[in-house]
């Protein structure tokens, strides 16, 4: 178990969470960020890294990933800590008003302030609507490939038509005893090279390709044993398998945040626009995750929220100090 002590624990390493490090840093507050995604940048890096953004002040146009890279450069002097690829599962307020934030990987962050900059929530695998699917999770059903060796000499069914379905089908065809890829279409729109390779593997009999079909049922006795597939022509087939890996990308879900006693309205956290504080003392919410009258889900609004949050967070980190507002143009960026 890793134990980290910091001033501010920021949940979410999207653009607003990253900029919060800068605003906190100017006030000599150290930050640690946690994000469920394996990389920083939130939606920008996960959903639209190559898209241009036109409403960042001072940049007539900026590529989403370039903005993330710029923010990382901007906060580097403040040496933030990162726990990436970890989901915050637990948040506890201690008697002295400080917080313990714990992740699914048992990382514990002890902080004086918690800032939730979680965008639309945790990115989680999109699950197909199959009865009983969740009861087989960990018992033959998984939504990502953590350790390919798990599948050595086993029978696998993968479903999906995107890049990850193609890439894992190719990779696992060398490891598993039998690989079947089920896809609702009859073509793949992902990387043409990968698509061609999958068709070649099917032609040479190394994998089974079941096109224009979808999985309608799964069954087993304690562990997955069979997947039922229905074709466009309504033909039904049962496939014996050890594992099913549905690969349909990620979608954000509010997740455990909903259980922390925060006031929530339509999957967003209600905040006071004075400083973007929540109903729990010492917890702030900034960026797309919060809601208030007039809220606009814009990165630039999130940046503004981060600045005001930091001014207010100061009193939790330095309760005995008086805060005087300073311009970077006068004082520069005094790093740690």
């Amino acid at each position: 178990m890793e134990h980290i002590t910091t001033d501010i624990c920021i949940i979410g390493a999207g653009p607003v969470g990253l900029f919060a490090v800068f605003e906190a840093g100017l006030l000599k507050m150290r930050c640690h960020l946690i994000d469920v995604l394996p990389q920083v940048g939130g939606q920008l890096s996960e959903i639209y890294p190559q898209k241009p953004i036109y409403d960042i002040p001072g940049f007539p146009v900026v590529n989403a990933q370039d903005l993330v890279n710029g923010l990382m450069d901007q906060i580097e002097p403040f040496k933030p800590g990162f726990s990436l690829g970890e989901r915050v599962d637990h948040l506890e307020r201690l008697d002295d008003g400080t917080f313990i934030v714990r992740t699914n990987e048992s990382t514990e962050v002890h902080s004086k302030v918690v800032v939730i900059a979680g965008g639309l929530g945790c990115f989680e695998p999109r699950k197909p609507a199959i009865d009983g699917l969740e009861s087989f999770e960990g018992k033959g059903v998984s939504y990502m490939v953590r350790n390919p060796e798990t599948y050595r000499d086993k029978k696998l069914v993968l479903s999906g038509g995107g890049d990850s379905a193609l890439d894992w089908t190719i990779f696992l065809s060398e490891i598993a005893s039998e690989v079947t890829l089920v896809h609702r279409g009859d073509t793949f729109r992902g990387a043409p090279d990968s698509a061609e390779k999958v068709f070649d593997l099917a032609k040479s009999g190394k994998i089974n390709l079941v096109l224009q079909s979808h999985i309608t049922a799964i069954s087993g006795n304690g562990h997955l044993k069979q997947v039922t597939v229905q074709g466009k022509d309504n033909e039904i087939r049962n496939l014996e398998t050890d594992y099913l890996i549905p690969l349909f990308g990620l979608t954000p879900k509010l997740g455990p945040i909903a259980e922390w006693g925060l006031n929530i309205d339509k999957s967003a956290i209600e905040v006071n626009t004075l400083d973007y504080s929540t109903n729990i003392d010492g917890i702030f919410a900034i960026g797309d995750i919060n809601t208030y009258p007039g809220k606009l889900k814009l990165i630039l609004c999130g940046f503004h929220e981060a600045a005001l949050m930091a001014q207010s967070a100061f009193k939790y980190v330095y309760p005995d100090q008086k805060l005087s507002f300073k311009y970077t143009t006068v004082y520069g960026v005094n790093t740690f």
């Binding site: 197909p128 609507a129 479903s159 038509g161 995107g162 979808h214 466009k232």
Partner: peptide, 16 residues
């Protein structure tokens, strides 16, 4: 267009 079709391919509940 292509991007729409790619994204729809990522939906388990997509149909024709």
């Amino acid at each position: 267009q292509e991007q729409e079709l790619i994204t729809l391919d990522s939906r388990p509940d997509a149909s024709s």
